[in-house]
Design a binder for these strands. Sequence first.
RNA 1: GGGCGCAUAGCUCAGUUGGUUAGAGUGCUGCGUUGACAUCGCAGAGGUCAGAGGUUCGAUCCCUCUUGCGCCCACCA
Length: 946
Amino acid sequence: MELAKAYDPTQVEDRIYAFWEKNGYFKPETQIYLEPAEPQFVITVPPPNVTGTLHMGHALTAATEDLMTRYHRMKGARTLWVPGTDHAGIATQAVVEKKLAREGKDRRQMGRSAFLEEVWEFKEYSHTIITNQSKKLGMSMDWEREAFTMDENLSFAVRTAFKHLYDKGLIYRDTRMVNWDPVQLTGVSDLEAITEEDGEAGHLWTIRYPLQTNHWEGPAQDGTHEWGSGQWAEGATRFITIATTRPETLLGDTAIMVNPDDDRYKGLVGCRAILPVLGRWTPIIADEAVEMTFGTGAVKVTPAHDFTDYEVGKRHHLTFIEVLDASAKMNENAGPYAGLDRFECRKRIVADLQKEGLLVKVEDYRVRLARGERSGAVIEPRISLQWFCDMKDMGKMAGDAVRDGRIKIVPERFEKEWFRWLDNIRDWTISRQLWWGHQIPVWHVEGEKAEVKRRTTDDGRPAEYCALSEAEAYATAFKDWGPDVTLVQDTDVLDTWFSSGLWPFSTLGWPRDTEDMRKYYPNTMLETGYDILFFWVARMVMMGLELTGKAPFDTVYLHGLIRQADGKKMSKSRPEKAVDPLDMIAAYGTDALRFYLLTAGAPGNDIKVDVRVGPDGKKAVDQIEGARNFANKLWNAARFVIGKVRETGEVSEVSEGVEGVSSVKTPPDTSDTIDTLPDVWIAARTQQVVADVRRLLDDYQYGEAGKLIYEFVWNDFCDWYLELSKLSLNAPLLLHTLDTALRLLHPFMPFVTEEIWQKLKEGMRGPAFDYPALMLAPFPKPDQWSMVNGQWSIEQFTVVQEAIRAIRNMRAEYKVEPNKRIPALIGAGVWTATFTQMSEAIQMLARVDDTLRIAEQVAAPNQAVTLALGDVTVYLPMAGLVDLAAERVRLQTELGQIASQIEKIEKLLNSDFGKRAPPAVIEKEKARLADAHTKQAQIQERLQTL
RNA sequence: GGGCGCAUAGCUCAGUUGGUUAGAGUGCUGCGUUGACAUCGCAGAGGUCAGAGGUUCGAUCCCUCUUGCGCCCACCA
């Protein structure tokens, strides 16, 4: 049980993790300590994307969930934490495509199956990294239950879920305008189209379209008025002026619209404008969608490339003309601009408009652009054939689950967002034109490819089959079409969040009736960052309610986001400000990183990580360093305890829990073994902390709980109790207190606590060490006896602490040599017995010599500093050091402060406060007043004698 | 356009049912190393709790408004 002088996490963490894992301690089946009354605790990890490595956000997730898991496991709850990873459709496909591009390859040349082989290979590689990092972080997950969203059984769950929703009519296919990512060539959901809050730098172009009149019906057709000739609009006399941020889309305009109440344009509604470039006429229509105050009050309408215009187009039966292709290049409908990229086209068309005298003005303008979440490409609204999921009823159910308390969201404020989103939910675009993902389990009859909203052919036979497998689809199709039918599976894949939505139950075996499903569903807790509340949490709740009939978990705990010191999201584009958790682990250890993350803030609040780059180029974070120091402090405290216990030889027995430490339960005045004030005090303080930590952890206040343990360990245990142990040793209690601290701290800092505990176990005996590992040992329980009866000891100890601090303070003020012992006289009044008991401790801790005199009343020496502490007066007869004049000034100053304090309290008590405040509060003030009066008398008396 | 969060010591942040003496870490100042720990110890300085009003005996905390930041949702071209 030798301990190195300083704690070195690199020598410990991997070994300890391997020890836990090898022995199967992460499995619920191997738990030894179980409390029958404790409800089981089940949590499923938010599956990291198999796109690479873990970042600080994952570290926060890991720390928080491992804390929860270890706490419940030690409380005696049957505990399961299910690990897994997510195939992350778009994200992973993008990463692999980029990788292939570097190798000069393209997925379209490779073909679907060859490409998928590449992705699977990448997935394996990424998965290995993620698994190793998860273990580095200390995550106590049951690896034998690990899941991947594209595992066979989880894919089966996806098909089952799809079929259920399809058969119920909730999944349908339609041609609609969706957000289209022209780089990834797929539709994306509303949530994946990201808009910058303040928009992006762009322009607002004001353009005029000539109107058709009796004298001008468009450019002359004789070849002299070609577009770009500068004479295109020659002869036109009347114009309508519109404003746009996307001039290239005018090629697809099929109307101009104005507000029906706009007097400026009343006469023009029904007239025709001539579309520049192409020369086709477009009607001027009236629609409420137009904001009169913006721009010119007249708007171009491009029904095929804008969400608003799409709706307008449907309302007014306009023609839908697409001018952009899937990759956002101008298509054949774009006339002279066909084949150009959209932005190139924009430049040219603006130049041409100017040439033709149709450009009125250009203004700088902040454009609210939607960009693809993964590609960053500017989203182009596009009409396409997609699969949708009707969310109305499921959204209502999910809202109700929170409304009626079946699900609790922590912190509560996110419930408002929950309701707002779910109450206004729109149908979910679930299809993606990608290759990596779950292919939609619908088989179309070849030659009868399903049209919009049409599942049957003209003769009433099904045109498509939704099935759990191709064989099943064929089996059904044979009945309708005969043996010659050929089925073709839909080429789209599902949005990655579709499978994530099944996660809490698909990981347990759903839809099969597995033992895990019966035992561990619903989950207890869902923990994740608030940024995916809608993406993920809402979808799980909706899917869970719809498919299993149960809310998939009781509680949703949302943690904040990790940010850079400037408050921005950590990004790879600014590597100097970003932090890699592995670097932090290498520098400070996992425990330090975890403790920092857990105590850095409050639930749901973001954490800003302030990085310093050292002279060696290495990154440093002061707060993590502080947590590292704490681990070392604990380590050295343990080193001391072990050394002390060994010195005493005999004592090496520690009992389990507080129950067993008989001396702690014994009143201080009757015990043979533990009758000192410090012993009773530390036992009582321990119980207080245990009770508070449990209360805070049960209330999700993890940061507060961590800080409490930190203060207890560092201040109470190390600075006071260990110091006092040097005077008189109570080995069993010392060990017991350390053991309790280790147990409290284990969920926060699993490695260092387990390592110390194992060292103790090597050399100690007793029921406390009957468990094979700290992680399987019981979490401390508060003991009412010690708390109630310890209160008195805490009061006594506090008075002594104050006296010691006051003496130290004076020594520092008078610059007394640190090692020099000084005389002291203490008039302790009602505390005389307490101080007498603690006289040796006072001598040691305040460096007082053996002439120390303690009595109810002591005669004040002439040459002395006086410390008025209320009931207690301390005189320090520091001959030669005390300047009586200076001492007089010091006491006068203090007297002044006390006088003003007395005045303040008296004024308060004489005000309405004295009549209306609760008696307890008034009593407290009266006590303070009495204390101040005592001090005042002490000082006045002293001043008179001086 | 609607909604939410934050503003507390130089810095990073706690402060959950409103009690008059607002805390921690870190940084800063002074002193200190014969063994638990210098990744340390002792002591100290440092805050009109963003601003204004209101409710209350009493407000960092509750209400209203203002200012400054951050974020979410929404079809102002």
